[in-house]
Design a protein around this nucleic acid. Structure first.
Lengths: 330, 330
DNA sequence: TTTAGCACTCATATATTGACAATGCTAACA
DNA sequence: TGTTAGCATTGTCAATATATGAGTGCTAAA
């Protein structure tokens, strides 16, 4: 589709614009490509016809269009070699053997967020697919209990239960024992069903105050299956010049506060996915890079959010590095 | 210090400015105070001499100075009667009996943040003063354990431990039993000491792989004593016109990302404390209203952050309302 | 003590200008 | 046929000018 020089030109413009955030002029390029500015202009106007470049106004230099970024990402981009310093920082986390997968990922992403000036998001499917491996109930006072659920993947969830009526300790114990027997091995998001159709009828038979107890436990357990979302470095990407007006920043901040938006990101196939501008359904100036992982049977998604004008090569390299280290036994 | 009319005038100016965010002109007031604009101007210039009012430029209307807000808060302000709708919203939370104190507070503050367009902060002293009431250790696989600590106030903390060397299940069990015996009743922030000076020597005697085990547990437990901070409605206050430029917003966002800043807020005496502008050491345009609570022996602080130009009467009323309901048995 | 009236000041909005940085196009060149 | 020099053209940016309106301070009179 593009010849060699055109490809080079696009690469130069995209990368220069990523670096400087200013429209790239023909003059600035002729040294690199060893030809006159006029020649560059001819090629530029071809790339503009193709829809890969844009001008901010009639006599301005060129800027990559959304399609231009897309082309760059799909055909030109190659992951940048990580520099020693960055690699070292990440490696110290890998080497910290006391971290489990979850912590490894969030710590790594914190650092990546700093290194790239992007906002990092960790979407843990922390519980959904996990299976219950133990249920524990600890009384706090007459009316309050704490229910703790531990899953086979090592996640812990807990919830306070309040039981208004007076219920005998024995009844509670019996209920917990029954629950324990019947729901171990059940996936967290299935627990609701199992409680309703299998546990409830049995409790009704054997336990006196079954209604009150059942309800308390039911609401507690159905609360567990939600996803966890963490975000670091919200401010980072907002420092970029494309977010240089108050309204834009406010808009982005509001979107960050809405966790629904983050859920929407999670949907696509494996590997690294890059959504540019309007593809994000978030903001036309924004790119979202996300990657699913599946290590030791634990799934999740990590994502980086920033301006379209982000260092794609570095971002991809960093994410791949994280994934690589995940495989190696984390 | 101020006569009746001057007090009224200050009240009108502060409240009008809070509502409109525009300098208040003498003309706008003469209807309310039944005198001509010239009279108002005379009084205004007296209040300006006193340092309670300011002009934004030589021919502008008046704006409350920091000192003006201070005077208003200290001498004029009276809590506003809550309107029925707001009261109802808060009451539904109070009535939700399945909520424990922590949840009651965070849910209430979420709503208050919405109602006031301020940012709400909940600083839970969630664990510091709590005493350990149970320690539970659950094995996940050969090298990973989960340590769960439950406190007498019903807080649950957990942490993954990784133990690289092969340690016998028996050793682990012995260690946990010892820990359980020795640290129950200890305050969370004291656990470190107790482990070091009381538990360690004993483990060393009875358990084979004591070094490895002790280290794993020690790092886990000393992690528990940190405070929890939650923030809701970051965006709310940023919608106000005083934060109408990108740099200002960025500055505030950065400060919000830094949890240290939030810690600093927590220091003063009981009741409701209002810090205005430079008193906040946060930003000159910002007011922080904070309130300590102590219910059922659980302490904490809640705070609202927003522009100096906030509805003090409403804010104070809301916080008092929350505290009132806390006393009544939540 | 209050007020009407007037001169004065400053913010805000809009238009005008010149310098500059690019471009597109044309015609000449290799 | 591809490349390049030259020039008119176009738009940005910053500085400057101009008009308008909202508000004040001050003074003199009620």
């Amino acid at each position: 589709m593009l010849n060699d020089r055109q490809t080079k030109l696009l690469k130069i413009i995209v990368e220069d614009y990523i670096k400087t955030a200013r429209p790239v002029s023909s003059k600035a390029i002729c040294d690199i490509l060893n030809c006159s500015s006029a020649t560059i202009r001819n090629e530029m106007s071809y790339l503009e016809e193709t829809g890969l470049l844009e001008k901010t106004h009639i006599s301005s230099g060129r800027v990559p269009s959304e399609k231009g970024y897309r082309y760059y990402v799909d055909h030109i981009l190659e992951p940048r070699e990580l520099n020693g310093e960055d690699m070292l920082k990440l490696q110290t986390i890998v080497n910290n053997s006391s971290l489990m997968l979850d912590d490894y990922i969030s710590k790594s992403m914190e650092i990546v967020s700093e290194m790239t000036n992007l906002t990092a998001i960790v979407l843990g499917k922390s519980s959904k697919d996990n299976c219950v491996s133990k249920v524990e109930v600890v009384p706090i006072n007459e009316h309050n209990l704490i229910a703790i659920v531990i899953t086979d993947k090592g996640h812990v969830e807990h919830k306070n239960l309040t039981i208004k009526e007076n219920v005998s300790i024995n009844d509670i114990k019996q209920t917990v024992d029954l629950i324990n027997k019947m729901i171990i091995g059940t996936q967290l998001n299935e627990v609701g069903k199992v409680l309703e159709y299998e546990v409830k009828p049995i409790i009704a038979k054997y336990v006196k105050q079954h209604e009150v107890l059942y309800n308390a436990f039911y609401t507690a357990f159905t609360d567990f299956a939600k996803e966890s979302v963490t975000m670091t470095g919200r401010k980072n990407m907002l420092m970029q010049p494309e977010f240089n007006n108050a309204d834009k920043i406010r808009d982005i901040i509001s979107k960050f506060e809405d966790k629904e938006m983050v859920d929407k990101i999670e949907e696509n196939d494996n590997g690294i996915n890059i959504y540019i501008g309007s593809e994000t359904e978030f903001d036309d100036d924004v790119t979202i890079v996300k990657m699913k992982y599946d290590a030791q049977g634990e799934e999740g998604t990590i994502a980086l959010v920033g301006p379209k004008r982000m260092e794609y090569d570095k971002v991809v390299a960093l994410l791949e590095y994280i994934k690589e280290n995940m495989k190696e036994g984390k």
